[in-house]
């Protein structure tokens, strides 16, 4: 039997807003694609650019980072720093010719369960359209 290889999506969610938003989506029984794998981080600014590249190395086809809305960070300013870092990284990826839709940053609060589900849905569709990530793959990790 051929197992369909769904695109794999890694979502870095901050503990205080987006992860709680995902929880809310669950308790409200809102569906979001099963190929979105959530990694919980204390804050969006915990996401080292290396994490994102590592996710691609290990076979992710798309990476999305979610955090509290600017101004609402649990640690007051973490997401502002994250915003600068991530903007520069995304710009560099695109500069190297990596499809710019493979990465995304969204602000999702703990009250936005519906937004979380909708964001994941739309991101998953975008990645499905792009297909497998070939430009940042590491064959050794695919064995």
């Amino acid at each position: 039997m051929q197992i369909e290889k769904k695109p794999l999506i890694v979502a870095f969610c901050c503990n205080w807003c987006s992860y709680a938003g995902a929880d809310l989506a669950g308790t409200n029984r809102l569906n979001y694609p099963a190929n979105v794998k959530i990694i919980r981080v204390p804050c969006s600014c915990r996401v080292n650019p290396l994490f994102i590249l590592k996710a691609f190395q290990r076979g992710a086809d798309g990476v999305i980072i979610c955090g509290c809305h600017p101004g609402d960070c649990h640690y007051t300013t973490g997401n502002y720093y994250a915003r600068r870092r991530i903007t520069l990284l995304f710009s560099m990826l695109s500069y190297l010719g990596i499809e710019k839709n493979r990465v995304r940053l969204e602000w999702v609060s703990a009250a936005e369960g519906a937004k979380f589900a909708a964001t994941m849905q739309s991101f998953a569709e975008e990645i499905a359209e792009l297909g497998e990530c070939k430009r940042l793959e590491d064959l050794r990790c695919k064995k």
């Binding site: 650019p49 290396l50 590249l53 590592k54 691609f56 190395q57 520069l88 990284l89 560099m92 990826l93 190297l96 990596i98 430009r135 940042l136 793959e137 590491d138 064959l139 050794r140």
Partner: peptide, 29 residues
């Protein structure tokens, strides 16, 4: 970070292009 064997990018891979991208993005970053 590039001297850390556990980083997965400490040396050049001859299998594919990933480490080249990774090394150069991270070095510049």
């Amino acid at each position: 970070v590039f001297d850390n064997d556990a980083s997965g990018v400490a040396a050049k891979s001859n299998a594919n292009s990933f480490e080249e991208n990774m090394f150069h993005i991270i070095r510049a970053y």
